[in-house]
Design a protein around this nucleic acid. Sequence first.
DNA 1: TTCAAAATTAGAACAATATTCTAATTTTAA
DNA 2: TTAAAATTAGAATATTGTTCTAATTTTGAA
Lengths: 152, 152
Amino acid sequence: MELDALDKQLVALLQEDCKKTTKQYADALQLSKTAVYERIRRLERTGVITGYVALLNKSKIKRDFTVLCHIRLVQHTKENVLRFEREILKLEEVSECFHVGGDYDYILKINVEDMKSYREFMITKLTAINNIGNTQSSFVINEVKNSPSVHI
Amino acid sequence: MELDALDKQLVALLQEDCKKTTKQYADALQLSKTAVYERIRRLERTGVITGYVALLNKSKIKRDFTVLCHIRLVQHTKENVLRFEREILKLEEVSECFHVGGDYDYILKINVEDMKSYREFMITKLTAINNIGNTQSSFVINEVKNSPSVHI
DNA sequence: TTCAAAATTAGAACAATATTCTAATTTTAA
DNA sequence: TTAAAATTAGAATATTGTTCTAATTTTGAA
């Protein structure tokens, strides 16, 4: 699917705030609300927009201790890789997990309440997973930018 | 603000999908729609919920080349740190940027179209920033998990 | 370039949902 | 134990989403 300039503007607006009324987007794009309504439906139907979610203030829910954890596996067989990823998906503390090239195999973003609960998480959940070689935890001092949206 | 069990359930639902009707959340929580409506308003007013956004399929908009870039600064004076962060905030390719402790000073998540555009980004934008010592790019082979939501 | 088919759009009509209101119930704290 | 405050349910209303029809624009083949 090809996105024209209006689609891109619309998607940018929806990435900022998806709870405005159709009329508000219509005014911003100088279109009728039907036009905007149909464009949004098409973006959803074609899979450009995958969903709509609420964003939380992590400090208000006691999850503002963030760690970027680098992991090296011992063995890199297909089986081991798939099993590791399956285990990671079960861990609710892990909000992001990327298989990467370079010095380490995986980089994870972990959100917990504090250092104490991070230690608990490491001991009882993360390093309990088989085949983990070693880990390196980078503790977040400051979130300069943390947005789920991407430029379009 | 204290969140009771119903608030937590509600927030969990809103992090999955914020576009259901009040009645749908009400049914899930076994409450009236007014009760749910007021709870959501309170979560917004007290800053637990910071906003509502659309999520995109990055491959559909040609931004599915993801790199986690590690950066070391030359000098760590307050001025240099603040200037660096100010420059990073201007770069639309950077969706996340964390100041971390450990081997490197910053870890960035960068979303572009392909390797070619990543090279272009590095040369013309990133390393154009003053005071960057060295960088290490970890190219994402697979997104195991990538969610803006946090467990509650 | 021309023209017919397909897609998109505007505006009106309608349906569904959000929002407000009142009263009842529950919770809180003295 | 009890009065004040907060929360809730259900009804009434306002707003917005959705559908419909016709007009306009875009697209692609001749």
